[in-house]
Write a protein that binds this DNA or RNA. Structure first.
Lengths: 190, 190
DNA sequence: GGCAGGTATCTACCCGGAGTAACTTTTGCC
DNA sequence: GGCAAAAGTTACTCCGGGTAGATACCTGCC
C-alpha cells in the first residue's frame, strides 16, 4: 500500500498514540497497511524505528519550544517557557514520548535512555555556552549541563505524568526555580 | 542449593557484574545454583527482582553517600560530595546500575525509569525541605526538586559512563555548579 | 528398615514479540 | 502474451520470560 518511510513513521505515531507505548511491531505494520518485512525494509529494526520517531519528536518539540522561548522577556522567562513547553508537549504526545524514551529493544540500555537527550543536547549546549560567555562565565560546562538539564526535565516529566497530582504551571515554576537559581537559593526575586 | 532470598539476590548481583546488564533470568538462576522456578519462588518475577536489587543498591549508595556528605563543610560542599559520590558509586556498580535503571520487563515503562528515583526521592525531599526551611524559603518545592536532581544525576551519569571522556571530578564539579547555583549564575565565588 | 505423604526442585514446555527466509503476486518491459 | 524483476506476504526461527506437571528427596510413622 503506502511503503515510503515517512508514511510508515506517521502511521507508527498514530497507532502508538492510540494503543499506547507497548504497541508491537506487527501492530505498527498493520496500522500502516503493510506487513512486518515491509516495515523492516522501510525503516529498519525496532531500534531504528525508535530512533526515527525520536528524531521527529525532537524536531517538533524543538520547533514549538523554540518559538515559545523566542517570545520570552529575559533569560529566566525563557527558561520558564522552555520547562513549561517541555512538560506540555511531552504530555500531549505522552505515549510517543514514552515509546521513544523507553521503547528500544534492549540492545544498549544506555543508548536507549539517552536517545532523546542526545538529539537535543547539542542544541542546548550551544545556547548555554552562548549565555555563559555573555555573562563572562566559563562556557565549558555547557555539554554536561545540557545532560543535567535534560535529565531533570525528563524525570520530572515522568513523575508528573505518572502521579498527575501537581498542576503543570506549579511544577514548571518549581523546576524553573531549581534550574535557574539552584539549591543555593534565589539571588533576587522569586 | 541455597534458596533464600538474600542469597539469590547476592548471586544475581554477582552475575550481573560479570555478564553485564543484559544477563538473562536463566543465567541468574544458574549463577545461584538453582533453576528459574526457584528464583521465581524466592524473589518473584523480573520486575520484582529488579525492584529488590534496586532497593539493595539504593541502600548501599545512600549509606556511603550519606557518610561522605556528613563530613562536608557547608551545604555546597555537601552537594559536591553527593554528586561525586553518586557518580563514583554508579561507576563502581556500573552493570548493576544499568540493570536496575533499565532492566524491567517492559511492563510499566514509567515505573521502570523512576525505580531508583522513587526509592531515593523521599529522602532527598526531606533534606531539601529542611534546608529550604532553614533559609526561610518555600519548602513545598522539595519533591519536584528531588526528581529534578535525581534526573540530572542519572542522565549525567549515563552520559559520562558512556562517553568516558570527561574526568569524574571535572564533571562532578560542573554539575554541582549547575545544581547549586543554577543557570542564572554564581552568587559569590566559584 | 521400609513405606506413605508431603515438599522441594527440576525438566520440559507455552507464549509472545523481534527478526528473516522463501514463496507469491504484481508490474513493467519486450 | 510471455518473462523478469520488484514488491509483498506467509510462515517460519529464535530467544527470553513465565509456568505446569513430572520427579526426586526428605520426613515421620509403623
Amino acid at each position: 500500500m503506502l511503503a515510503d518511510r515517512d508514511a510508515l513513521l506517521t502511521a507508527a505515531e498514530r497507532i502508538i498514540r492510540v494503543e499506547g507505548p507497548a504497541v508491537t511491531l506487527d501492530a505498527i505494520a498493520a496500522a500502516a497497511g503493510v506487513t512486518k518485512p515491509i516495515l523492516y525494509r522501510g525503516v529498519g529494526d525496532k531500534d531504528a524505528l525508535v530512533q526515527a520517531l525520536a528524531e521527529r519528536l525532537v524536531a517538533r518539540m524543538t520547533d514549538e519550544v523554540t518559538t515559545m522561548v523566542a517570545a520570552a522577556k529575559g533569560p529566566r522567562d525563557g527558561l520558564r517557557r522552555l520547562v513549561g513547553g517541555y512538560l506540555a508537549l511531552a504530555a500531549r504526545d505522552r505515549s510517543l514520548y514514552l515509546y521513544v524514551t523507553a521503547g528500544g529493544s534492549n540492545g544498549d540500555r544506555v543508548q536507549q535512555a539517552l536517545l532523546l537527550a542526545d538529539r537535543t543536547a547539542a542544541g542546548f549546549a550551544e545556547g548555554i555556552a552562548a549565555f555563559r560567555t555573555a555573562q563572562g562565565a566559563d562556557p565549558s560546562v555547557a555539554l554536561a549541563w545540557s545532560y543535567g538539564l535534560l535529565g531533570a526535565l525528563h524525570f520530572v516529566t515522568l513523575w508528573w505524568l505518572r502521579d498527575g497530582t501537581a498542576d503543570t504551571d506549579g511544577v514548571a515554576e518549581q523546576i524553573t526555580g531549581l534550574l535557574w537559581s539552584g539549591l543555593g537559593g534565589e539571588r533576587t526575586g522569586t
